[in-house]
C-alpha cells in the first residue's frame, strides 16, 4: 500500500512539475532495469550485480525485469518504448546494433540515449586439448585448402565472431549452431566439432583444467588473465570482436536524469566489490561515459555493417 501511495505521489509530482523539477527530484521512487535476456545468463548476472552496487549511489532500489524474446529484441524494444522519465532503464547489448540491420528488430540504437558502457568481453578461440590444430594459422590453412571442412561450434546464428574471421581471411567454416557457450564447448570437448569462439569467462575453467586449449583472443591486447594467449592481430589476422553490455534510456529522457544515472553507475563500476565480482565472473570491465559509449556504438556499427551486408 505504502509503495503504491508513493507511486501515486510520484505520478502527481511528475505531472505537476516541469522536466527540471522532475530531474531535480530524481529518483523519487524505485527504478526498473529491463534485461533483454533470461534470468541466470551472463547479461543477467552483470545486470543484477550492477543494480546491486548502483542502488546506494541513487538512493532508490533497482529491480531487474527480465524480458526475453527475439534474441534480445523484445526487451530492448520495450526499453526504447518505455516512458522517458528515467524510471525504466535498459541493459543493452551488441544485438542493438546487429538485430535492426538483420531486419529482426524495429528500433535501433537511435531510439536510445546511452548512459554508460560497463563491460566488453573479447572473443576467445578454443580447441580440444589434443586437437591437431596448434595455432590459429592451422585452422585458417585447413579451411583455405578445403572450404567448409572445419567444423565450428557456433553459439549463435549468425555468429559475428566467425563471420569476421571468414570475411577477413576469405574462408568458410562448417558452422554448426549450438544453444549457447555451454553446449558448444561441450561439443568441442567431446570431439564432435573442432573449435568454438566464446567469451573467455565461459571457458575459463576448462582452459585451466586443460580440457580446452585457447588459440587466440580477438582483442586489441592480450588478456591479463591469459597472458600466454596471443591476439589475432599478433598472428597476422586483423580481426577484433567481442560482446559488450551497457545501460541506455529512451531518447527523450532529460539530460539531467541521464547525468545522474551516468555518475551513479560510474561510481558502481569503480566500486571495489563490483570489480571483484566482475573479475570472479570473468567479465571484463570497460567503463565508458555516455559520450564515449555513443561513439563506441557508432564504430561497432561500422565494423559489423560489411559482415551483415554479405549475409
Amino acid at each position: 500500500m505504502k509503495k503504491s501511495l508513493k507511486a501515486i505521489a510520484g505520478v502527481v509530482a511528475l505531472s505537476l512539475g516541469s522536466s527540471l523539477a522532475m530531474a531535480a527530484d530524481y529518483p523519487a521512487r524505485n527504478i526498473r532495469m529491463i534485461v533483454p535476456f533470461g534470468a541466470g545468463g551472463g547479461t543477467d548476472s552483470v545486470a543484477r550485480a550492477l543494480a546491486e552496487y548502483t542502488e546506494p549511489h541513487l538512493g532508490q532500489p533497482i529491480a531487474i525485469m527480465n524480458r526475453t524474446g527475439g534474441a534480445g529484441a523484445v526487451g530492448m524494444t520495450a526499453g526504447a518504448n518505455s516512458r522517458a522519465d528515467g524510471y525504466t532503464i535498459t541493459m543493452i547489448t551488441r544485438e542493438i546494433v546487429s538485430l535492426p540491420k538483420l531486419g529482426l528488430m524495429q528500433v535501433d540504437s537511435e531510439a536510445f540515449k546511452m548512459v554508460r558502457l560497463v563491460n566488453f568481453d573479447p572473443a576467445l578461440v578454443t580447441v580440444k586439448a589434443d586437437s591437431p590444430y596448434k595455432t590459429m594459422g592451422d585452422i585458417i590453412e585447413k579451411a583455405k585448402a578445403n572450404p567448409g571442412s572445419v567444423k565450428f561450434a557456433s553459439t549463435a546464428k549468425p555468429n559475428f565472431y566467425a563471420l569476421a574471421i571468414e570475411r577477413n581471411q576469405d574462408v568458410t567454416f562448417n558452422q554448426i549452431p549450438f544453444n549457447g557457450a555451454a553446449e558448444a564447448s561441450t561439443a568441442v570437448m567431446g570431439g564432435h566439432v573442432e573449435f568454438t569462439i566464446t567469451g573467455p569467462g565461459e571457458v575459463k575453467s576448462q582452459v585451466e583444467s586443460g580440457q580446452l586449449r585457447p588459440l587466440a583472443v580477438m582483442a586489441e591486447k592480450r588478456l591479463a588473465s591469459m597472458p600466454e594467449v596471443p591476439t589475432m592481430k599478433e598472428l597476422g589476422f586483423d580481426v577484433v570482436s567481442g560482446t559488450w553490455r551497457g545501460i541506455a534510456v529512451p531518447k527523450k529522457t532529460p539530460d539531467e536524469i541521464v547525468a545522474k544515472l551516468e555518475s551513479a553507475i560510474g561510481k558502481a563500476v569503480a566500486d571495489k566489490d563490483f570489480v571483484a565480482f566482475m573479475e570472479k565472473g570473468n567479465f571484463f570491465i570497460e567503463d565508458k561515459s555516455a559520450a564515449e559509449f555513443t561513439k563506441f556504438i557508432g564504430e561497432d556499427t561500422k565494423s559489423l555493417m560489411p559482415i551483415i551486408e554479405k549475409l
Binding site: 524474446g69 527475439g70 523484445v74 524494444t77
Partner: peptide, 9 residues
C-alpha cells in the same frame, strides 16, 4: 512469425 517480434523465440 508473421512479423511479430514476440514470436521470434
Amino acid at each position: 512469425t508473421f512479423g511479430v517480434m514476440e514470436l521470434y523465440n
